[in-house]
Each structure stands twice: as structure tokens, then as C-alpha cells.
Design a protein around this nucleic acid. Structure first.
Lengths: 338, 338
DNA sequence: GACTGGCACTCTGAGACCGGGAGTGCCAAA
DNA sequence: TTTGGCACTCCCGGTCTCAGAGTGCCAGTC
């Protein structure tokens, strides 16, 4: 395809994103100093439409990019526009103040939504990809203990459980020592194997308690594993109220379903640090009219994902830059806290 | 005021809530076997309008209740309609499965929003009204500890802090003993006084660490105190999209502001177990077009609030019944777990 | 005095109609 | 390959009309 045709496509995408209105040949020829007349642009547009990159809502209207058009724009045309230094500084300052992981996640999700004016979604560091830093047992009553697990990413999970037998103070300490010996420093993905052996290693008197513990640990690691997600900026969806028309409700509903959000963030192109999914590329039906920009984050390896959801007619260069910058900085913070 | 006039008002409220359209004299006379003609109803309506309970969007339209009209309805006319036994059983079953407090709150807020088809808001048990069950110190590194606080309502707060000096294992145990001695079983509202004395009670070598701990404890108790709130069912707002017209965004935004939500739940009529605030009765501007139904909950004394937010044209009897039932059952659960 | 049927009046909302304007496709010429 | 010109299409916003719903008021009845 012609270089100029690509320029025309870029012009259409940029103008449409800016004005929210179909853009005509005349506007393109005038505003984007292509050095050709509107008639020429019309020819190019006819080609682009034929090829499926743009379409007309009706005869005698301007053109609108299709999903395929946005895709081409993102892949080849959009020059990522880096954040302004002021923005960059604000991001750093805001995130640096975070006290602990919860705080980091909460601040991140707010920041992302404000920066992009879209809905932001941040996954807590996946337990599967973390290692155990420490396990603590707190006796609440003789038969009730609280299990606290702290990972290298700073995530803290806590569960309470009822024990089959009363435990003395020393017993608690022994169990604590035992589970820490078995799990400390180990990646949680490998934990299930180790956990099942726990009961056997305990003194006979502690067997039943140890296996109760093991059961809860397994549950925490396996079933609850990735479920935590933070969302912010849902109000931004109303900016595009015309766009989403009647379909606002299903999106709001989907945003409250952790499972759905995990899918949304999860399907990342292996390898790529940043993924953009546009319209029909989303496998979840409710998001067929949206674009999703996600990035992995983590100290070294990826331990979680974050991203934003908006209309396909979004400012891709700006959004991509914001998501990437924030993901990188959060990774740095996790690195430091390790 | 005439008994029949009240009946007319009830009819208008009920029909308007059901149909979302202004209701005329004929409809009232026909559907609500009042035994009088439409003309008579018209006279009553003229009176009700004069008195400010209803109004006409324009001449030649039916009548719509005003905030004042809803208020009268709620105070004197709406017979609370109890939940069906099926619903009641579902509530019990769903909440009984909760594993810990987080789970209770999450389930409660979902339940409320599903039961009422509105946005539900649930405050975590206020720290100010809880007592300390246990405090735990977990050494993460020689100079970093995690402080875990567990209250009688099952709420768990955890914070990490950097210490000014290295601590030996015994030191940690001693500090733990110290803070537990000082705080265990005490209401957190009284805690600040006790906390400031902490440092003085510690051995000289531990003073600096103890005061760092005290500082974090104070922060947790005072500034973070009531800030936790859970929200669900925002998607339900779109049901009333016509009603909220352009004002959907501010409401969505307000729902993400914990401070605002706390105000919304906080201003409860002293004494009353259940509060209904209609339209202008809400002190927060963004909620001037909504109705808010809130109830306190807690084992014995009130430790937190929950409620729903919806359009003033809501099903008050049903909503009130649902909020009350759920609040009661959550209170029971907290009672059991105490 | 309270209620009722009748009637004239008002106002909205939906549909029909219309003209301007934006944008197109195509063609012949450069 | 590009361009200016031109006929054509279709939306959008405005005006107009009309039926329908609902009212207020009045005079008559119980």
C-alpha cells in the first residue's frame, strides 16, 4: 500500500478520535498538508474502504476507521507520544508515597484512570508467580488461628481457620516453624506439592491440625489465587455515552466480575510487554465495542497485569504511553521493595 | 388531610414507581377501586398539588410525586412488604457461607444490590466502635516489621513499618507483649490515649522502636479509621438512565470517593435503626436526585452502616425491607463470630 | 356540601414534510 | 496519476400538523 494512503488513514484516525465525527475528504486534504487535492484523497479513501480499513455510516457521510483500521494505525502509524515531564513527575511523586502494596495498587489504578480518562484495571501480583517471604500463625483462641502469608511482592493474604484440636502456644510455634521451613523462599506455583507433605512431617499429635492448615493453604494458593483486581474510573465511560449507546450496562456489569476482568487482563500476547486489543479482537462479548490496552508489570518477571478499557475510538498513542510508563514505574517500586 | 386523599397519593406513588410515567386521574380512579369518579380524584389531586405532594411536568400531563410526597408515603403510607421466604432463605444461605469478614462484606454488598436492583454500599465495621482482639508483630527483616491488628468484629488491618533500630527476636516478642497488654480488649476509641504512653513503658533500648510502632498504630486507628467501604451494582444506575439523564457521571464519580460514601452512610438519624433520605434531604449535592436507604448493623451496638442508592422513584417498601433484613442478618453473623 | 358528567382547553409527542449542506462517485481533461 | 467539476444521495434540523391524554371548571344531582 501507498505511503500516502497510510497518511490518509492516519489523518482519518486522528481526526475522528479528536472530533468524534466522520471525517470527509476535504477536511483531510486541508488539515494534513498532504499536498494533494480532495479528489485524490477521495480516491485513496475509496481504496481504503475497499480494503476494509474505513467505512461510511451512510452515503454522503465522512469515513470512520474500522477495527482493522485502528489495528493498522496502532501497529504501523501511531508514534507513541511520551508523557510530559510534568506528568512523569506527578506519576513518580504519587506512587512513591505509597505505604504498602495495597496502597500501590489503589494509587496505580487511580492514576491510570486519571491519566487516560478511561476505566483502569489493575491486577494484584499473582500468587502463582510470587514466592513466599514469610508465613505467620496467630493464635486467636485455642482452636482458632489466623494464617498470614506474605509474598516477595508485598502481597498479604490472611485467612482464619478452626482447628480440630486445641493447640498450646508451643504447638503454634512449631507449626509455624514447620510451614516456614517448607515454604519460605519457594515459588508459590510449586507450593501445592510441598503442602501436601506438610501433615506427614508434623508430630503425630499435630497431624490433624497440620492437615487443616494445609487444606487452607492450598485453597488460598490455588482457588483464590489470582482473583484480586482493582478498578477505577468507571465514570469515564459516560464520556462516551453516545458511543456505547445502550451497551453501557453490560460493560459496567462486566467490570464488577473479577473473573471477567482476569480474562481481560490475562490473554496477553506471550512475550509482548504491551498488548492492545481492539473491538472484535476481544474474546469477551461485552467488550466487542471497546479497546483494551494492557501491560505486564513486575520486578524482572511479570507478576501481574494492568490496563485500561475505553472505546475503540481512543487516543492510542497517549494511552499506550501512559500504561507503559505506569507499568514500568510500578515494576521499579516492586523491585525496590523486594 | 382526608383519608381518601392519602389513598390517592399512595396510588400515584405506586403507579408512578411501577410505570415510570406520570399518572392521570382516570388511571387512579380505575385501577385503585376508590369508589369515586375521575372528577373527584381530580379535585383531590388539585389539593395534593397545592399542598406540595405532587406536581405536573406540564399542563395536560399526569402527576408525579414530589420529594415531599415520597416522604409522606414512606412515613405513613408504605406498608413494608417482607421478603418472600425464598428470598429470606437465599439471604441466609448466601451469607452463612462467608469465611471471614472480608467475605461477609463482599457478599453483603452483592446481595443487597441484587435484591434491590440498586447500587449497594457497605461500610466495614468502624474501628472506632470496635475493640482490639489481638495485635501481632511479624518480623520481616531485622529492621522491618508488619503490624497486624485484629478486632472483635473480625476486621484485620495490617501495616508494615521500618524501624529505627535492629530488633532481636526476643525484642519483637517483648514489644508484642507490651502492645497487647496495653490494648487487648480495649475499645479502639480509647486507644489513642493508651498508645502515646507505649514508648515510655518500654525498656530504654526499645523506646525508639516502640514509638515508631505507636505512631503507625495511631495512624491506623485515627486517620485510616473509617475509610473502608464496598460498593456493588453500579450497573443498576443505567436502568434509570432516562431519570438520571446527564447526571449519571457525577454519581458514578461520587461512588468512587470513599469520603463521600462515608458521609452518605454516616448521617444517620440518631436512634433510628433505618433511615431514608429522599432527594433534597441528602446533604451531598450529587445525590440530590437520589434516594438513600441506610441501616446500621452490628452485634448489639452499631459498628457500621449499609445501604442502597437509587432514584427517588424507587420501590420504598421493598427496598426498606431488603436493607433491614440484610442488616439484621449480618448483625447476627457478627454476633456469632464474636 | 360532596360528588359527578360534560366540555372546552392546553400541551406534548410522533409523524410528515422540506431545504440546506456535506460528502460522495465518476468523468473528462491536464 | 492527479485534478476540477458536477450531479447525486442522504442526513440533519427546522417547521407544521394532528391526535390523544389530561386537566380545570361548571352546572347539575344526590
Amino acid at each position: 500500500m501507498d505511503d500516502r494512503k497510510l497518511e490518509v488513514l492516519r489523518a482519518i484516525v486522528e481526526d475522528y478520535v479528536a472530533t468524534q465525527e466522520p471525517v470527509g475528504s476535504k477536511a483531510v486534504a486541508q488539515r494534513h498538508a498532504l499536498g494533494v487535492s480532495a479528489a485524490t484523497v477521495r480516491n485513496d479513501m475509496a481504496y481504503l474502504e475497499e480494503a476494509g480499513y474505513i467505512h461510511q455510516p451512510h452515503t454522503s457521510a465522512g469515513r470512520i476507521p474500522t477495527d482493522k483500521g485502528y489495528r493498522l494505525f496502532v501497529d504501523r502509524l501511531g508514534k507513541i507520544k511520551p508523557l510530559s515531564t510534568a506528568e512523569r513527575r506527578a506519576v513518580h511523586r504519587f506512587l512513591a508515597e505509597a505505604l504498602d502494596l495495597d496502597d500501590v495498587v489503589t494509587r496505580t489504578v487511580r492514576l491510570l484512570s486519571q491519566l487516560t480518562h478511561q476505566v483502569a484495571v489493575v491486577q494484584y501480583p499473582s500468587l502463582n508467580r510470587s514466592t513466599v517471604r514469610h508465613l505467620e500463625l496467630v493464635a486467636l483462641t485455642p482452636t482458632r488461628v489466623m494464617l498470614v502469608m506474605i509474598t516477595d511482592t508485598g502481597r498479604v493474604e490472611q485467612r482464619q481457620l478452626e482447628l480440630p484440636a486445641e493447640l498450646a502456644e508451643d504447638d503454634v510455634l512449631e507449626l509455624r516453624r514447620l510451614i516456614n521451613e517448607q515454604l519460605q523462599g519457594k515459588p508459590l506455583a510449586d507450593a501445592p506439592r510441598t503442602i501436601v507433605e506438610l501433615a506427614e512431617l508434623a508430630r503425630p499429635e499435630l497431624r490433624s491440625s497440620a492437615s487443616a492448615l494445609a487444606r487452607v493453604l492450598l485453597e488460598t494458593v490455588v482457588s483464590r489465587a489470582d482473583e484480586r483486581v482493582a478498578v477505577a474510573g468507571a465514570a469515564n465511560l459516560t464520556r462516551h455515552t453516545a458511543y456505547f449507546a445502550g451497551s453501557l450496562r453490560p460493560i459496567l456489569e462486566a467490570l464488577e466480575e473479577e473473573v471477567v476482568l482476569m480474562q481481560l487482563l490475562g490473554h496477553t500476547d506471550s512475550g509482548a510487554m504491551l498488548t492492545v486489543r481492539i473491538g472484535d479482537e476481544n474474546e469477551i462479548d461485552d467488550f466487542r465495542e471497546t479497546a483494551v490496552v494492557t501491560a505486564g508489570y513486575g520486578p524482572g518477571a511479570v507478576v501481574g497485569h494492568m490496563g485500561v478499557v475505553g472505546p475503540t475510538r481512543m487516543d492510542y498513542p497517549g494511552t499506550i504511553a501512559a500504561v507503559r510508563a505506569v507499568a514500568r514505574y510500578v515494576s521499579e517500586i516492586l523491585e525496590q521493595n523486594r
